[in-house]
Design a protein around this nucleic acid. Structure first.
Length: 478
RNA sequence: CGGGGUGUAGCGCAACUGGCAGCGCGCUUGGUUUGGGACCAAGAUGCUGGAGGUUCAAGUCCUCUCACUCCGACCA
C-alpha cells in the first residue's frame, strides 16, 4: 500500500543507472521540459530561478572587476565568421544558418552565433584607436546555438544560455593577467557559491579553444566519476587582432595590435550542481543559489492556529531568507519528499506540538538531521544552518573528489584504474599529442587539464616512457 | 554521424495469432484526513508520434519519417 506507492514515485537510484537518475531528477524537480525542437530544452521556473541566482552572483563579480555588459546581435554574416581560420574550422561543423528572410533568399547567409568572438572583434576594430581606449572589458549574457549530434538537458543542448566575456588589452601581459583573473573569479564562484571544488589549470593544445593561444579551465568531478569542464578562460594573444585588424596607437605613436581574452560559463553549471550534490532523494542545492532556502510545512494545518503561526514565521523569516510555505492539502509526508526532490536546503515543520512548546522542527536536506529550535532563536539558527550547509556541501564534494582522484605511472595501470574506479587520474605526460591521442583511443579518457599545482608522480610519460614534462589530470568527460 | 532501445490519456505501463483501446498514478467534484508520498464516493481525459501501404478489419504487419533515450565519435 503506502510502501508500494512510494516505489511508484521513486526515482532511479544513482548506483543503478546514473544517467537515468539525472534525467529523473531534472524532470521530477521540475527544472526542464523537452520542447518540440530536437535538443532544445524548456527551462522551467525552478530551473530558471537557479540560473538567475547564479547569474546575479557572477554578474556582481564581473562588475566588481571592472567589466561592463553589452549585447551583440544574434546573427553573424558568413564573411565575418570566415575571418579567423582556426576559429571557423572549429565551429563550422556545428553552426546553424539563416538563408531566407521571409520568402526571399539572402544575398549572404547568416549564422546563428555559436559564440561571438567575430562580432566583438569587428566592433573592437571600430572603436579602438588609441591606447587611451584600452582596456575594453565587455561581457554579454545571451544564448548561443551549436548543432550538436547528441544532447542532454543542461549538459549539452542545441541552444544554451551563457555569458561570454571579451576583452582587449594593450599588452600581452595584461591579457594574460585578465585570463587568469577571470579563471580565478570562476573558481572562487564555483567553490563559494555552487560549493563545487574545481581543478584549475591549462588545456593541452589538442583541447584548447579554436583560435586561442592558450585555454585555461576549471574542471570538476561528478558523482559518477566523470569530469565536467565547468568554465574556460582563453588568452587569444593577438591572433584575432591580426585577422580583424584591431590596432591602436601607443604612447610612442606606434601602431600596435591589441591582445584579447574571452571567458565563459554556461547553463551546464546547473548540470554540475545536480551531479555533484544530488542523491537518491533528488537535488541538493547550495543555500546561496537555492531559489527557496527554507520551506515551511505546516502539520495538522486544519487545526486552529497552525496556519496562522506558520504564516507568522513566513513573514518573519522572509525579511532575511528566501522562504516559501506549502499550505496545500497534500499530506505532510508528500511535501517532505517533494521539497527533498527539489533540494530545498532547510525544511521547517510547525505543528500543534511545536506551538505548544514554542518551537519548530528544522530538517537539513543534506544530512536530514532534525533540529528542534525555540522560535525565539529561529532567525539565528536558520542563518547558521544555511551557512553550515553551504560549507559542508563543499567539504563533502571535495572529499568525494579527492577519494576519486588516483594516480597512474603506466598506461596499463591507467586503464585498470579507469575501468574499475572512474575518476580523475593524475599521470605524467611527455607533451606529445601522439600520446594524448593514444590514451584517448585506448581508454576514451582525455587530458582534462595541466593543473597549476603540479606534482611529480614519476619522471616518465605514462604512455611512451620518455621523459615527462607535465602532470596531467585525465578522465572521461561529459 | 555509427550502433542499440523506446514512442498507446498529464505520467508509468497493458492490449495473445490483426477483431469494441484498457489499468495504475495523477487530475476534477464532494466528504473524511494531516509529524515520512492518506482514504471513500462520483467523474473527465485518446486521430495509439507522423505520413503512406497491405487487409473486410491495423496499436498490432510492411515502407518511409520524426522525436526521445542510452553507448561511441564531436563538442561548453
Amino acid at each position: 500500500m503506502a510502501k508500494d506507492k512510494k516505489l511508484v514515485e521513486a526515482i532511479t537510484s544513482m548506483n543503478d543507472d546514473f544517467a537515468q537518475w539525472y534525467t529523473d531528477v531534472i524532470k521530477k524537480a521540475e527544472m526542464v521540459d523537452y520542447s518540440s525542437v530536437r535538443g532544445c530544452m524548456i527551462i522551467k521556473p525552478y530551473g530558471y530561478a537557479i540560473w538567475e541566482n547564479l547569474q546575479k552572483e557572477l554578474d556582481n563579480r564581473f562588475k566588481a572587476t571592472g567589466h561592463e555588459n553589452v549585447y551583440m546581435p544574434l546573427l553573424i554574416p558568413e564573411s565575418l565568421l570566415l575571418k579567423e581560420k582556426e576559429h571557423v574550422a572549429g565551429f563550422a561543423p556545428e553552426v546553424a544558418w539563416v538563408t531566407h528572410g521571409g520568402d526571399e533568399k539572402l544575398a549572404e547567409r547568416l549564422c546563428i552565433r555559436p559564440t561571438s568572438e567575430t562580432l566583438f572583434c569587428e566592433h573592437y576594430a571600430n572603436i579602438i584607436h588609441s591606447y587611451r581606449d584600452l582596456p575594453k572589458l565587455y561581457n554579454q549574457w545571451c544564448s548561443v546555438v551549436r548543432w550538436e549530434k547528441t544532447t542532454r538537458p543542461f549538459l549539452r543542448t542545441l541552444e544554451f544560455l551563457w555569458q561570454e566575456g571579451h576583452t582587449a588589452h594593450a599588452t600581452e601581459e595584461e591579457a594574460q593577467e585578465e585570463t587568469i583573473k577571470m579563471l580565478n573569479v570562476y573558481s572562487e564562484f564555483c567553490e563559494n557559491v555552487l560549493a563545487i571544488p574545481v581543478i584549475k589549470g591549462r588545456k593541452t593544445d589538442k583541447e584548447k579553444f579554436a583560435g586561442a593561444k592558450a585555454t585555461y579551465t576549471i574542471e570538476s568531478l561528478m558523482h559518477d566519476g566523470k569530469a565536467l569542464q565547468s568554465g574556460t578562460s582563453h588568452n587569444f594573444g593577438d591572433g584575432f587582432a591580426k585577422a580583424f585588424e584591431i590596432q591602436y596607437t601607443d604612447k610612442n605613436n606606434q601602431l600596435q595590435y591589441v591582445h584579447q581574452t574571452s571567458w565563459g560559463v554556461t547553463t551546464r553549471l546547473i548540470g554540475a550542481i545536480i551531479m555533484v550534490h544530488g542523491d537518491d532523494s533528488g537535488l541538493i542545492l547550495p543555500p546561496v543559489i537555492a531559489p527557496t532556502q527554507v520551506i515551511i510545512i505546516p502539520v495538522s494545518q486544519q487545526k486552529e492556529g497552525v496556519l496562522d503561526k506558520a504564516n507568522e514565521l513566513l513573514s518573519k523569516l522572509s525579511a532575511k531568507f528566501r522562504v516559501k510555505i506549502d499550505d496545500s492539502d497534500k499530506m505532510p509526508g508528500w511535501k517532505f519528499s517533494e521539497y527533498e526532490m527539489k533540494g530545498v536546503p532547510l525544511r521547517l515543520e510547525i505543528g500543534p506540538k511545536d506551538i505548544e512548546k514554542n518551537q519548530v522542527v528544522l530538517v537539513r536536506r543534506d544530512t536530514r538531521e532534525k533540529i528542534f529550535t525555540p522560535i525565539d532563536d529561529l532567525e539565528e539558527t536558520v542563518e547558521n544552518l544555511l551557512i553550515d550547509i553551504q560549507k559542508s556541501l563543499l567539504e563533502k564534494a571535495r572529499e568525494l573528489r579527492d577519494k576519486k582522484t588516483y594516480t597512474a605511472t603506466t598506461l596499463d595501470e591507467f586503464e585498470q584504474v579507469l575501468n574499475t574506479t572512474p575518476g580523475f587520474i593524475k599521470a605524467m605526460w611527455c607533451g606529445e599529442q601522439e600520446c594524448e591521442d593514444k590514451v584517448k583511443e585506448k581508454t576514451s579518457a582525455t587530458a582534462r587539464c595541466m593543473p597549476f599545482e603540479q606534482e611529480q608522480i614519476s619522471d616518465k610519460c605514462m604512455c611512451c616512457g620518455k621523459p615527462a614534462k607535465t602532470m596531467v589530470y585525465w578522465g572521461k568527460a561529459y
